[in-house]
């Protein structure tokens, strides 16, 4: 046998202590056997508090965003239906924005105000995420909540500003179990963004975090019908026009966010 160095090793999927500290609620997760035991619970509460105080002095060059805990989650800025579907309901090609397309739009708008967004962004641990349902429902609200980690989509480390864009990929990744399936997948971006914006509230550490969503329009909306009726022969043109429409809406979401930042004195 010989000593064999390992060339690459995958980063574990559980956080180290410095990363975990960014989520002060983590230690509130108590074993069932501790619950209902007054002394033990008091000790837990005290220890958790002490833990936070003691370790808040810890400096770690790899910890990313640290410092004063003065960040916030921005409210949702609504432009676009935030609804879409894929399957037999769609006779027009759906024009979902990819994560890359959305990043490009958001970064471009943000740069006008001196915010330089990078794709490498922090993780928010143990926050409330949407639990989506991909299959058709006539319920007014079809999105529930679940606990999980959120890797943000963009980050300006110097200004401590970050964002998450709720994309089709996200809706699929957050999908819960469904009692039934169908040939149509529905995407409730706005609903999911609402759950997410609320779910990360108070858990963003020192960062100000915006939640944007794919503005995609419902098939029977006036906007979509106008495009379909004017381009019945060419699906490529239809898709292009729909993308322009949703990108414009996304720009509006970002502009509203930038105005809000100024109003808050953050910019």
């Amino acid at each position: 046998m010989k000593v064999k160095p390992i060339e690459k090793y995958k980063t574990p999927t559980y956080p180290n202590k410095n990363e975990a500290l960014k989520n002060p609620d983590l230690l509130k997760t108590l074993p069932e056997r501790w619950k209902g035991k007054a002394k033990a619970c008091t000790a837990v509460a005290l220890s958790s508090l002490l833990f936070m105080i003691l370790t808040s002095c810890n400096t770690d060059e790899n910890a990313g965003s640290t410092g004063s805990d003065t960040g916030t989650a921005a409210p949702l800025f609504i432009h676009g239906d935030g609804r879409g579907s894929f399957g037999c309901e769609s006779v027009a090609p759906p024009a979902f924005l990819s994560e890359e397309e959305a990043f490009s739009v958001i970064a471009e708008e943000a740069q006008r105000e001196g915010i330089i967004l990078k794709g490498e962004a922090p993780v928010l641990y143990n926050v409330t995420l949407p639990e989506t349902n991909l299959y058709y429902s006539d319920k007014e609200k079809n999105t529930k909540a679940q606990k999980g980690d959120l890797t943000l989509d963009g980050y300006d480390e110097a200004k401590q500003i970050a964002f998450e864009f709720v994309s089709k990929d996200d809706i699929q990744a957050w999908a819960g179990q469904s009692a039934f399936m169908s040939s149509v997948e529905t995407f409730r971006f706005l609903e999911a963004a609402e759950v997410l914006a609320e779910g990360i509230s108070g858990k963003t550490g020192p960062m100000t975090v915006a939640t944007f969503y794919d503005p995609h329009y419902k098939f029977d909306s006036e906007e979509i019908q106008d495009i379909i009726n004017s381009n019945t022969e060419d699906f490529n043109i239809m898709e292009e026009k729909m993308k322009e429409l949703v990108k414009a809406d996304l720009r509006e979401q970002v502009r509203d966010f930038l105005s809000w930042l100024k109003g808050q004195g953050i910019l």
Partner: peptide
């Protein structure tokens, strides 16, 4: 990773709470 993904409370307390032995 599996236990963290489950947000298993015993795992979290044991490994992230420095005061776990006392508690």
């Amino acid at each position: 990773g599996r236990l963290y993904k489950k947000r298993n409370a015993m795992f979290i307390q044991k490994h992230y709470n420095e005061f776990y032995p006392i508690v």
